[in-house]
Simulated scan of single mutants.
Amino acid sequence: MTDDREASGDGRERPDSAADRRGRRAGSTPAGDGDKGRATAVRDGRPAKASLPSRVVRFLREVVAELRKVIWPTRNQLITYTIVVLVFVSFMVALVALLDLVFAQGVTYLFGT
């Protein structure tokens, strides 16, 4: 029986953490693509701001990239989730209304009107 940390048959070590599995190491960027992930350029040790249009374009590009990662619910899932939310909200409204009524009666009993 082999230990999980021993080298596998192909000569590579098994990653110890999720970061290792993604290939992240100290000093590297998440995607390992050099300076591509940096928000601003650096000149003379000071960060230089990118122009507003380039920042807006980059933001929109990143929004589209994130929306492509979303797993959208099917119609049946959407209907089910909507019903669950409506039932839960109805229950909470009824609970708060009941507690309000009980506390109002208690205050009336204690202090009178």
Rank of each mutant, 00 (worst) to 15 (best):
S17N: 10
V63C: 10
G106S: 12
L101W: 08
Y109R: 12
R5V: 04
L52P: 02
L78K: 07
T113Y: 09
S8H: 11
F91W: 05
D35H: 13
L78I: 00
G9C: 08
S51D: 11
L52C: 03
E6C: 03
G27Q: 02
L86N: 08
G34T: 03
P15I: 04
G32F: 01
L86S: 12
S28W: 03
F88G: 07
S90R: 01
A31F: 09
A7S: 13
I83P: 01
D100A: 13
V57F: 08
R58C: 11
T2D: 07
T82W: 08
T2L: 10
D10H: 13
G45P: 02
R58Y: 09
D100K: 00
G27R: 02
D100W: 09
T29A: 07
R61L: 15
E13L: 05
V85H: 00
V85M: 00
D10W: 14
L78M: 11
F111M: 14
T29E: 07
F91N: 02
L52V: 13
R38V: 01
G11D: 03
A50M: 10
R43F: 05
V84S: 08
G37W: 10
A41T: 12
P15F: 04
G11V: 02
T80E: 14
L86R: 12
R25S: 13
D20A: 13
L99V: 02
G32L: 03
A18C: 05
G27W: 02
S90L: 11
E62S: 11
L86F: 12
F59G: 03
F59P: 00
Q105M: 13
V87L: 11
P15V: 03
A39P: 03
I71Y: 00
R5M: 07
D3I: 00
A7Y: 11
M1D: 08
V93F: 09
D100P: 00
G34E: 04
P73S: 04
D4R: 10
A18Q: 04
G45E: 02
A65W: 05
T29F: 01
A19Q: 15
I71K: 14
R24V: 06
R58M: 14
T40Q: 11
L95M: 13
A39C: 13
P15Q: 05
F111K: 14
V96G: 10
S54Y: 09
A41H: 12
R12Y: 09
G27Y: 02
A18P: 00
G27D: 02
R21E: 14
L110S: 14
G9K: 14
P15T: 03
R68K: 14
S54V: 15
K36N: 04
P53H: 04
F88T: 06
R21I: 03
L60K: 14
S17H: 06
P73E: 04
L78N: 10
A7L: 15
I83T: 14
A50W: 01
A41N: 11
G9V: 14
P15W: 05
D16Y: 05
P30T: 01
D3P: 00
E66F: 09
R46H: 15
G37Q: 15
P15Y: 04
V85C: 00
R58N: 15
G23S: 02
G23P: 01
K36I: 07
V107A: 15
